[in-house]
Design a binder for these strands. Structure first.
Lengths: 200, 200
DNA sequence: GTCTATAGGTGGATAGAC
DNA sequence: GTCTATCCACCTATAGAC
């Protein structure tokens, strides 16, 4: 907290390494060389490599939430929910590494963080629940349990995105995008939401 | 191919290491120590560590298909589709490591394998398409494009399973199982399949 | 088919001087 | 806040004898 400046600079450079090579791509040696310092200098700002990696992931959550928040600009509850889905996809496609560490990797729940991080950062899950509640209140969707519904939606969206990011779907990005929209509409139909969808 | 016996033994032991520690858990040194030989001995049977790991994954596909095939014992198309979903879950829960390497990790398509492995082992995807086609033919589901529908179903199921395996869902196994069933039924409703489901 | 010896590489991290 | 000097653990793989 004292010397915030240097720490930020390290985080920026480390973020670029992470972008290019994922967690494995971030090594104290490589990072130090890139910044023109010795590896040990980094330990003044981060206790360990895991500490550094943790900071990068935290940043990821913040970025993600920023994407989701954009959807609030829409006028109606239904439009906001749909927009949230698009923002979700956009984040995943523009930050695949971040997405992978945030949602596709097993992290054995470090007992330090007060358990608040369950539901993969409750804030993002809450966001989705709120969107669905909004739609239910407006009568656009028929939902008895918003949390259960949100989980279905999240899983669906995550399933599509993660399979695509893992290279399991032999389609290109644009093909995937339309496929993503269609699949979501099909799911919405299950909630009584007529898939009259939006423009893209 | 010549000395199949020793190769199998290695594969068994390596499989156990893999089970316990994932891909990272399989090291030539560790494996050799476990088997009471020197690391170099292993190179008689596998060209490299990647070769060994590849063999383990191949085995995984075979095991997975065996699970899916069990669902064919059911009497009706609808029951077979539902059973396939349960077998999918069962495989994932009983072989989480295998599931992870097969579906949750990015493999940069080695151009050697003739491209036949796209769609994450076409065989398993085909299986799902067939189940859905069957249901459509029987009038249980209303599906225009079986492949697109299969993709939706796969993504949904994979999304749930992978989030659970990654520890992102703060529920225990039994809670997850019922949640899994419910979520699938909700999706099926989108296909016109009344979620009158099955027993568990 | 298995061994010894060994080369060569990656990485994280501590101690203590400047 | 950064350095040098190390240490350590871990790993894959080659060469050539038995």
């Amino acid at each position: 907290m004292a010397a915030g400046l240097a720490r930020e600079r390290i985080l920026v450079e480390a973020g670029e390494l992470f972008l290019a090579g994922g967690p494995e791509g971030v090594t104290m040696r490589g990072l130090a060389a890139r910044m023109g310092v010795t590896p040990m200098a980094l330990y003044r700002h981060f206790d360990s490599r895991d500490d550094l990696l943790g900071a990068i992931v935290e940043e990821g959550h913040a970025v993600f939430l920023r994407y989701l928040n954009r959807s609030l600009a829409e006028a109606t509850p239904a439009a906001r929910l749909l927009a949230a889905g698009r923002q979700y996809l956009l984040f995943a496609l523009e930050h695949p590494r971040r997405y992978a560490v945030m949602f596709m990797e097993h992290v054995p729940q470090p007992p330090e963080k007060k358990g608040a991080n369950a539901w993969a950062d409750a804030a993002t899950f809450r966001f989705l629940v709120d969107r669905i509640r909004e739609c239910a209140a407006a009568g656009v969707l028929t939902v008895e349990d918003p949390e259960a519904a949100a989980l279905s939606v999240w899983a669906h969206v995550h399933g599509l995105v993660s399979l695509f990011l893992a290279g399991k779907l032999p389609v290109d990005r644009t093909a995937f995008e339309s496929l993503y929209d269609e699949s979501i509409q099909r799911l919405m139909r299950g909630f009584g939401g007529g898939g009259k969808g939006g423009s893209r």
